[in-house]
């Protein structure tokens, strides 16, 4: 994945180290390997590689991670815009 970098400084991922218990679930599930655990606390090592899939937040036992999850897909976003505009679901987006 080193060949592929997306837009910097946009991902909504954040980690509350106070709450973190250092279980390492986020390290396991992240498909971009952006977490590490040091001294029983997780840390975000590469924030800009985050694709906001939400796997870490979903598998955090103490809700220390917050991210606005979704699929990074233009067709999906266009469908959401149009559905929001007309007030009902007329487009289905991707997959």
């Amino acid at each position: 994945m080193q060949n592929f970098r997306y837009i910097d400084k946009v991902a909504t991922l954040s980690l509350d180290q106070e709450t973190c218990i250092g279980c390492g679930n986020c390290v396991t599930v992240c498909p971009h390997r952006i977490f590490g655990v040091a001294e029983r606390k997780a840390e975000i090592e590469d924030q800009d590689a985050c694709m906001e899939c939400g796997a870490c937040a979903k598998n955090c036992p103490v809700q220390a991670i917050s991210v606005n999850p979704g699929v990074g897909c233009a067709a999906e976003i266009i469908a959401n815009w149009i559905n929001g505009f007309v007030g009902r679901k007329i487009m289905s987006g991707c997959c």
Partner: peptide, 20 residues
């Protein structure tokens, strides 16, 4: 190309909306 974001495994929804 913009639509291809949906097929890649590294684009974030916030980023895609930003570029759209």
């Amino acid at each position: 190309a913009m639509n291809f974001t949906g097929s890649t495994p590294f684009t974030s929804p916030t980023g895609v909306e930003h570029e759209m």
